[in-house]
Amino acid sequence: MTRTTNTPLVEMRDISISFGGIKAVDHVTVNLFAGEVVGLLGHNGAGKSTLIKCLSGAYRPDHGQVFIDGQKVTINNPRDARAQNIETIYQTLALADNLNAAANLFLGRELINSAGLLDEAQMEAETRKIMARLNPNFRKFNVPVSALSGGQRQSVAIARAVYFNAKILIMDEPTAALGPQETQMVAELIEELKKQGLGIFLIEHDIHNVMKLCDRASVMKNGQLVGTVDVDKVTDDEILGMIIMGKQSNQGV
């Protein structure tokens, strides 16, 4: 872990959000430093995705603040989040199935030419460039993404997050739908992005991936934060204990 400064890249402080009386996220504080991968763990319904959607602009928290580089920011919608260089890879991938890879990659941020019209050729050329880096076998540039395999769709979603120079990357179970080879590809990508100084929030169920990829892990249960641990200093059993029992580990806090 390379913590160069003491100011976290992101700090989500005391975040709460409830839906119809149910507290989905209950006074949770997490932070993330540049060049670090923080795993967000917990059962289904523990509030991980909801918490992260407060950062990506999909939800507005009822309570709490978000700080980026120590500055308080207001994120009301996905556009605000993107303006802060926060990119998200959703579990559902959030791709428009009827559009091709380039159209999805640039969705909401289309390149336009001098006449104000979409510059399709330029967008396709840029898509070819980034895909050549991420997934050199990718060839299907002119078909709707519904015609792509799970791994290919995933690489389109990742390309979308990486292309726009993200500082903060949120990955919601990026390897859930992937085969072993593609999972390895994502793992290598995470390592590479980390070296470039990005901060990554990784929602992950597979404890082996957590131990391999994450620097720290924040565990949630029933909307509350159980605790945050340094992954190097705990065993996978201890993390599993936190997830299942909701008890704070003694080590590595």
Binding site: S56, T92, L95, L107, L118
Partner: peptide, 24 residues
């Protein structure tokens, strides 16, 4: 087919949630 407006029309039709997550 050639403007952002039209692109968003198709995006909403293909996946309304994705469109709104993309800031539309």
């Amino acid at each position: 087919t050639r403007t952002r407006f039209g692109r968003y029309v198709f995006a909403i039709g293909g996946n309304p949630e994705a469109a709104s997550l993309a800031g539309i």
